[in-house]
Design a protein around this nucleic acid. Structure first.
Lengths: 336, 336
DNA sequence: CCTTACCTTGAAACCGGTTTCAAGATATCG
DNA sequence: CGATATCTTGAAACCGGTTTCAAGGTAAGG
């Protein structure tokens, strides 16, 4: 273990530990001779500061707590990676906790993070109330990614899911689709609800009314995409396109369609949401609404860093975009 | 912020801080009355111990450093999730660092972890030498996942990649394939090398010699799977099956085959490696050699926890298995 | 050349716990 | 009932840094 302390250096360099600390920090002027002596000793002894001691003394732990909705979901993982990347150039290290889609776990994970005296928090998704957040971490700088609070004073990095749902649906509409099924996602999840709202809005804009028989719920997993399509087929519904809650669901839906001998996009068009890595490589490459997850994570890192430096930072809405690949058929030209 | 300290409790409970510490730890007997007084005060004041101070005083940080080869690779991410899950029931929290496939970054990330005075380390994959590891973290308990060292004294959780490569190739062979192309993976990466060795062994066992024209390199990305197939096709090679370095590469290969109007598995069979989530949902569902990544992560967590308690733990080899789905065609019956 | 302002520097307090040590209290035992 | 062993307990040292404070030294101004 590295047992060299600041006192050892002080002794070797012939100065006080205060001076060593000052040299290492570089903020206060120190006589060049002593400075050199300290630096030399530091190098010779291979001194590495004890971050724990530093934290206790300075009150800052140089650690950012990152609480994620779920590790293992491509979207949230991508955000987490963005946070890591954004923090990499700073002196702060991220420390992770996982909410596992469950509010109680999420809360206790948050408490553990706060108990570790993190200097700041990045919350990725999640479902705990702003009340609970406030109670648990009063005063701590917080940035929230991929979630918004209507009332709150938090800084959020979010994407407009209503706009996303609208754009995806609109794309289908523009290509002549009228019977558009939607696999909604978790009925309690804000993102899913908003995307659905976008879907409804796009339909209504054309004077259509959403057909309840064409909406199915899911839990964002591929498995639930399969179930959804099976359900739709079993019910005997007719549809020319499916809007899936996210790409993972779309993968499942795509497989189920295949099993029903429904070709994509010839028989049924398919559109996803997220644009995860694999989406560009399935057959056919999936048209989807891209969320800039990694960037969102980086923005969050930048934001928390700013907050930590006392600079201000206000909520930010990032823009998604439709990524058009080959899973949607253009019915309008086909019918010409 | 939580400003309640152990001194506040001592004052309220009318005892010394030593006694408070003892009560909170529970190891030493304390008079029931005082114990109750302390517990009551703790609850009433909402005391949460300052983990940083605890760490400094006790010399243990209750933190496990996790260094991953790369965040964003499904396989390594799955291991990381396993580690998180395995640590969840303990009092230790994981703190992450990312090597980003680059040895210098890996080394500096490791140093930063050690500087934080983690109590133990879990290394996921990676390429730094055992020499470098020893120099950086002498004495610290270490568990290494998804990598083995021939010489070393480390505890490793690994899978036999040679056996995996052999099993995958053998599966193809058993189904009558003889022209088996392989997309090898990173030429410097141990896993890739070993899988290739397994491939060679399977071939040689049947008296065949590996055809260098059928081996292409990749970097484990889907993009490189596309490139590999394009390369193979451009060269005009004939092959009835492809063994891809990992599933991601297989995805790319599958798409490229489609673009060349080569059907899977009718024209070309495809087998992957890893069995990541999405593999079961592409079309056709991918036959692949499954690495129990998440379990490996959990084993690693268990191992480091044991080591921390002074118990012993020796290296462990987990077993992979072939997951047969629908991307491999049986040529032997077809020809009957 | 003397006074005042500013620098540089070391001693000491401090961060919030854990742990050692010794004293006082209690229990055990002959 | 006295002596010794065992428990319980508080004071103080300690972990390894940061930060305050005041002293001594130097530079600038009159």
């Amino acid at each position: 273990m590295n047992k060299v302390t600041i006192d050892d250096i002080a002794k070797v360099a012939g100065v006080s530990k205060s001076t060593v600390s000052r040299v290492l920090h570089g903020k206060v002027a120190v006589h060049p001779d002593k400075k050199n002596a300290v630096l030399t000793a530091t190098r010779r002894l291979g001194f590495k500061p004890n971050i724990v001691a530093q934290s206790l003394a300075s009150g800052r732990s140089m650690t950012i707590g990152v609480l994620t909705q779920n590790m293992g979901s491509p979207f949230y993982d991508a955000i987490a990676q963005g946070v890591i990347a954004g923090l990499a150039s700073s002196n702060y290290s991220p420390i992770f906790a996982d909410g596992q889609w469950q509010i109680p776990k999420e809360l206790s994970a948050l408490q553990s993070l706060v108990g570790r005296r993190v200097d700041g928090l990045v919350l990725i998704g999640g479902g705990i109330s702003s009340q609970q957040i406030d109670d648990t971490c009063d005063g701590l700088p917080i940035v929230i990614v991929a979630r918004t609070f209507a009332e709150s004073h938090y800084r959020c990095i979010s994407m407009d899911n209503i706009a996303g749902g609208y754009a995806a649906t609109r794309h289908l509409l523009d290509r002549g689709h009228r019977k558009i099924a939607i696999v909604r996602g978790l009925p309690t999840h804000a993102d899913a609800i908003e995307r659905y709202q976008g879907y409804v809005r796009a339909l209504e804009e054309l004077g259509m009314v959403p057909d309840p028989r064409l909406v199915v719920e899911s839990d964002f997993s591929p498995e639930s995409g399969i179930t959804a399509v099976n359900e739709l087929v079993k019910r005997g519904e007719r549809f020319s396109a499916i809007f899936a809650a996210n790409d993972l669901t779309a993968f499942g839906a795509r497989l189920a369609l295949d099993q029903h001998r429904l070709r994509v996009p010839d028989d049924v068009s398919l559109i996803g949401f997220d644009d995860q890595l694999e989406s560009a490589y399935i057959t056919p490459p999936l048209t989807t609404y891209r969320q800039p997850a990694r960037e969102m994570g980086q923005y969050a890192a930048d934001a928390i860093l700013k907050l930590l430096q006392g600079e201000e930072f206000s909520s930010l809405q990032v823009h998604g975009e439709l990524v058009i690949r080959h899973s949607v058929r253009d019915l309008s030209t086909a019918s010409v």
